[in-house]
Amino acid sequence: MNDFCLEFQNFTLGYQGHAAVHHLSGSVARGSLTAIAGANGSGKSTLLKGIAGILKPISGSCAAHINRLAYLPQQSELDRTFPARVIDLVALGFWQRRGLLGRITLQDRAELTKCLGAVGLEGFEKRPLDSLSGGQMQRALFARTMLQDADLILLDEPFNAVDARTIADLVMLVKGWTAEGRTVLCVLHDHVLVREHFPQTLLLARKLVSWGPTPDVMTAANLMRARGFQEAWDERSGWCEERLAPDGHGHCHPIIDKREQAVAAHV
């Protein structure tokens, strides 16, 4: 164990042969709080899926030095009409510790109640899922994420459809997690929120634009560059030959200049 939680090496993810995240290299320090920013289609969610192991990389690797991972997807496949109560949903967070057959003990129940309280859902245990509002559901999912007791937590746009007060509560919660030594990566659109609360930022535009301390990353120049990438797939685009050119100066990366690649290599 070193003090890196995640180490990317030439990590490339994509769909049907089209890369969505290109040749990402770098590492995430243990206990750090990183925002992942970028425009629509810049590969933010894809990166989280790749880290969570739901999407297999096209090439490269992502080494995770962790015991447990918690992943809160943006569009969950949660069936809200399923006849379950809030407690049933949140208790899924025990899966990694209790498994298929392990008993949920009284102590676990107390922990669950504490987590519901922490997200502001006291007394919601017996409420049916279909009676929750969008924001309440999001808070319930946060409670489940807490219960997973993971050392790496991936949040994909967790503050959608959540009101300002709840966002403030949830951000405090997330900061509390990092204070406990957990590593958090969070996809965010709200640049104000990123600047205010997230010490580290990873700016994506299909490939790394910039990665490091938030004030250094969220500059006007970087943000401008992050906007100017080709969002549509191009069937005629050539195959990326990076593997053949191991020095990393592939021809298919016209946006990134050498200076930025040096930055990317050093964070």
Binding site: E77, L89, L92, W95, R144
Partner: peptide
């Protein structure tokens, strides 16, 4: 779990 939230189940098991 598989009925309620299949994607979550995939991320933990």
């Amino acid at each position: 779990a598989e009925c309620l939230d299949p994607l979550f189940l995939r991320s933990v098991s």
